[in-house]
């Protein structure tokens, strides 16, 4: 109810921040599918997210078409990139998976930075992706709220489906799942591709939100930010991504207006969370509630 009433209660600046929180929560949830439910921590989802943004805006500025076609093409491009990443990465695990996804993300960043004729290089791409009826902050916020509600429900069903339970089994013991006859590489490939699909959805919505994309959108910092949002909220707790995204984006926007050293405040927050609540904010709350029940 509070989320629905927000545009009527708060100025447009706060509505814009809330919209950003919802978009990056989807990115964080997509990372949580791999990190929390499959046991593979990726550092390349910023590149997948940014690919959707780049393709959506490029399609809008160069090829025209309806806003929904642009978004679908952007999501398809991101899913394709995720599938390519998955084919290369499924044989690795742990720190090697992290490094490989980092390297693949850096390749995408390098291409976006250097291919100036298509991506605009450091200048980026600017394009009006939003249709006229979504021009106001409130109308766009409601669209994003509705879309994110549907996406969250689909993701929740996905991780609680038999396929999702198989992923948890793979996270617990890959060799056990292999000996039980499960096709572990195929499950990992599909999990990565589905995760990339949702990251692409977030990227396409971000293209509508920002109407501008630059290499920083596909950079390592974007991947790290998404991962930190998932960790802060609680890895393995899908809804923790909302808490993590809200915490980090609020800190970025509000603390920076009071001090130049807002990055130090952000870093201190992460240190405190890792020391006192390593399972994340939502994970910690769940632990406390379980202890009281039990």
């Amino acid at each position: 109810m509070g989320l629905a009433a927000m545009p009527y209660l708060l100025p447009n600046y706060y509505v814009s921040i809330a919209t950003q929180v919802l978009i990056f929560a989807v990115l964080a949830m997509s990372i949580d599918i791999l990190a929390g439910y499959t046991g593979r921590t990726p550092l390349g989802h910023g590149a997948i997210f940014g690919t959707a943004t780049y393709v959506t805006i490029y399609w809008a500025t160069t090829l025209g078409g309806s806003p929904w076609t642009r978004m679908l093409v952007g999501i398809a491009a991101a899913t394709t990139v995720a599938a390519i990443f998955a084919l290369l990465a499924i044989r690795t695990s742990g720190v090697y998976f992290l490094l490989l996804t980092l390297a693949l993300g850096m390749i995408v960043w390098g291409v976006c930075l250097r291919w100036t004729s298509v991506t605009g290089g450091e200048n980026g791409l600017r394009g009006a992706v939003r249709p006229a009826f979504l021009a106001t902050h409130a109308s766009f916020y409601y669209l994003v709220l509705g879309a994110v509600a549907v996406i969250t429900f689909v993701m929740w069903r996905f991780v609680n489906s038999p396929f999702g339970l198989t992923l948890r089994g793979i996270k617990d013991s890959e060799s056990r799942m292999r000996s039980l006859g499960y096709n572990v590489p195929l499950h990992l490939f599909l999990a990565f591709t589905v995760s990339g699909f949702f990251a692409g959805v977030a990227g396409a919505i971000y293209a509508m939100f920002n109407s501008f994309v630059s290499p920083s959108t596909v950079a390592l910092t974007q991947s790290v930010a998404g991962l930190l949002m998932a960790i802060t909220g609680g890895i393995g707790t899908l809804f923790g991504s909302f808490v993590g995204a809200a915490a980090i984006i609020s800190l970025e926007n509000f603390v920076s207006s009071y001090t130049e050293r807002w990055l130090s405040v952000l870093g201190l927050m992460f240190v405190l969370i890792m020391v006192f609540a390593p399972e994340g904010i939502v994970g910690r709350i769940r632990m406390i509630l379980d202890r009281r029940r039990g």
Binding site: Y96, L99, M106, V111
Partner: peptide
Amino acid sequence: MFPELAYFVIFGPMALILAFRPLGLFGRAA
């Protein structure tokens, strides 16, 4: 020669090595 490929040249080999030798170039399973 091709500045467009600069980051590909740096991170491409790293990605290929890890893709075909998941435990690193000289890595061995424990």
